[in-house]
Simulated assay, not measured.
Amino acid sequence: MTLAHFLDGLRCATCHTLNVLRLDPVRALVECAECGQTALILTDPDERRSL
């Protein structure tokens, strides 16, 4: 199972359209194909934490 599988069955928080979210792993973004809304994703909880 890949991270993209977790997007199946989800709605965009902005336009509420079902199954239109696309994963861009290079930029670490999820984007809605319908309205263009983007969200930053973190795959490692400690990735942005300062020491």
Rank of each mutant, 00 (worst) to 15 (best):
Thr43Glu: 14
Leu40Tyr: 09
Cys12Glu: 04
Arg22Lys: 15
Arg48Gly: 05
Cys35Trp: 09
Thr38Gln: 15
Leu21Pro: 05
Leu3Asn: 08
Thr14Asn: 09
Leu51Ala: 12
Arg22Cys: 12
Thr17Tyr: 03
Ser50Trp: 04
Ala28Thr: 12
Val26Glu: 14
Ala4Phe: 06
Arg49Met: 06
Thr2Phe: 10
Asp8Leu: 13
Leu51Tyr: 07
Arg27Pro: 01
Thr43Trp: 05
Asp46Lys: 08
Leu42Ala: 11
Cys35Gly: 11
Cys15Lys: 00
Ala39Lys: 09
Ala28Gln: 15
Ser50Asn: 05
Arg11Asn: 06
Arg22Gly: 10
Arg48Glu: 09
Arg49Val: 09
Ala4Asp: 12
Met1Trp: 04
Ala39Ser: 12
Leu42Val: 10
Gln37Ile: 07
Asp24Leu: 10
Ala28Asn: 13
Arg48Ser: 04
Arg11Phe: 07
Pro45Arg: 07
Leu29Phe: 07
Leu10Ile: 05
Thr43Arg: 13
Ala4Cys: 03
Arg22Met: 13
Gln37Asp: 12
Leu7Asp: 04
Gly36Lys: 09
Thr14Asp: 10
Thr14Pro: 00
Pro45Asn: 02
Cys32Asp: 01
Leu40Pro: 03
Cys32Tyr: 01
Thr43Ile: 11
Cys35Val: 08
Pro45Thr: 04
Cys15Arg: 00
Pro45Tyr: 03
Phe6Trp: 10
Ala28Glu: 14
Ala28Asp: 13
Met1Tyr: 02
Arg11Gln: 08
Arg11Cys: 07
Gly9Phe: 08
Leu51Ile: 05
Leu51Phe: 04
Pro25Glu: 15
Val20Met: 08
Glu31Met: 14
Leu21Gly: 01
Cys32Phe: 03
His16Val: 00
Leu10His: 03
Gly36Phe: 10
Leu29Gln: 15
Arg22Ala: 15
Glu34Leu: 01
Glu31Ser: 15
Cys32Lys: 04
His5Tyr: 11
Asp8Met: 09
Leu23Pro: 00
Val20Trp: 03
His5Trp: 07
Leu42Trp: 03
Leu7Ile: 01
Leu3Asp: 10
Gly36Val: 10
Cys35Gln: 08
Glu31Lys: 14
Asp24Ala: 00
Cys32Glu: 10
Arg48Thr: 07
Glu34Cys: 12
Thr14Gln: 01
Thr38Gly: 07
Val20Arg: 10
Leu7Glu: 04
Pro25Trp: 08
Phe6Ile: 11
Leu3Glu: 11
Val20Cys: 15
Leu10Gly: 05
Leu23Ala: 01
Pro25Thr: 06
Asp8Trp: 07
Thr17Arg: 14
Asp8Ser: 13
Val26Arg: 07
Leu51Trp: 08
Ile41Phe: 13
Glu47Val: 05
Thr2Lys: 12
Pro45Glu: 08
Glu31Thr: 14
Thr38Met: 11
Leu3Pro: 04
Met1Lys: 13
Val20Ile: 04
Leu7Met: 05
Leu21Cys: 02
Arg48Val: 07
Ala4Glu: 15
Leu7Arg: 06
Leu23Val: 00
Thr17Trp: 01
Thr38Ile: 11
Val30Gln: 02
Thr38His: 08
Ala33Trp: 01
Ile41His: 04
Arg22His: 12
Arg27Cys: 06
Cys15Asp: 01
Thr2Ala: 13
Gln37Tyr: 13
Thr2His: 09
Leu10Val: 04
Leu10Tyr: 02
Glu47Pro: 00
Asp24Ile: 03
